[in-house]
Design a protein around this nucleic acid. Sequence first.
DNA 1: TAATATTTTTAGATTAGTCTAAATTTTTTA
DNA 2: TAAAAAATTTAGACTAATCTAAAAATATTA
Lengths: 217, 217
Amino acid sequence: MQTFTEENYLKTIFFLSIGTDQWVSTNALAESTNTRAASVSDMLKRLAEKELINYQKYRGVRLTDEGERLALLVIRKHRLWEVFLAEKLQFGWDEVHVIAEELEHIRSERLIEKLDAFLGYPQFDPHGDPIPNAKGQMPELSYRKLSEVMTGKTVLMMGVCEHSPAFLQHLDKSGLTLGCSLKVEEINTFDQSICVLIDNQHPLFVSHEVAKNLLVK
Amino acid sequence: MQTFTEENYLKTIFFLSIGTDQWVSTNALAESTNTRAASVSDMLKRLAEKELINYQKYRGVRLTDEGERLALLVIRKHRLWEVFLAEKLQFGWDEVHVIAEELEHIRSERLIEKLDAFLGYPQFDPHGDPIPNAKGQMPELSYRKLSEVMTGKTVLMMGVCEHSPAFLQHLDKSGLTLGCSLKVEEINTFDQSICVLIDNQHPLFVSHEVAKNLLVK
DNA sequence: TAATATTTTTAGATTAGTCTAAATTTTTTA
DNA sequence: TAAAAAATTTAGACTAATCTAAAAATATTA
């Protein structure tokens, strides 16, 4: 049985590992968890003791299979609660993360399985992120970024890379919602900004900064 | 902002104060919180420091107005979550308490107000206990115990005193649910056990021990 | 490759919440 | 009402999670 803090470390290590086959560094963890490197070192010893991570002094950490399974179960809970908050309680997609950060630590397997059923076994959270299954497995998704799409192509908005409220509120204001179609009309060579047509109706100017953070297929 | 532990102490002091105008004793708190008297003394100093209780050494504690308000807000959250678990997730009334003990500490006013709305502003939790309002006020209910009802009278089952899973499961097995009508057919003078007629249909034998824990009107 | 810079770990403290054992206060009782 | 019993508090210690400052290891660079 893990503490809240241990669960948060596992989750953080998981996210920092994604995409790289590198070991996660102490400093990266300190930054992500808003603590100091010394505190991270302490915690890593504890997690290694419990065999949830492989830890090599000065070299970094990796999740063990069990550590990854636990991390994914926490992420599963987080994302299911986000769906609940957005769909049932009408919270905005920019608001759900903070509350789910607390709810994800509620310990009851039955609760989460019943919640899953109540929500109709959703596959994605309100940001388009996939929801791991009860065994702690998550499908690999291979979406492109909008910034990589060629002029003239039409794609569907499937998710976001950036999850900050500020970014999500910006998308709301721009009329960019999950599932909308985006036709790339023009890419400005100067600053990589893009003109898109949303759902074949509304034109929109999208900065490169934003385009880099939109996942499409 | 209180910690989980502080919130639990406030809640416990509140429940131990109900009905009596006595001050709550250190030992009573130690028993309720499954800690030692010494630990309680420590915590009481902290809570007194924060002006959430009036604490007189060796004499006991009382909640201040602010302490009572906070206790009632925790109870509000607890009971609203219980309604959610029972009505939306189909948990039994014997299962909801344990999970709500964790959910009651989630910190978001907006969450609890939206949950309240989602549930249709329920007035009672699955055990018939009243739900405090957002200001931290709870209606006084004056129900009798079934053990105090005269032979021949018909009453409605409104709540329970005892909340243990074992007791609630016993009621389930007996067919005693909130809102059912109970006609007292006979009271055995020997052991105070009672014969009742449930909903004018099924006869049932009720021990004094059970009757003492059923609230009726 | 030696000197410097960066990263990481260790050492030693701190806080919340808990404990046991001993001291103190209050209550009960003879 | 003094002695015994019960309740409560204090003293001192422990654990988890954190911190700062210093030491040690690794990486960079001239």
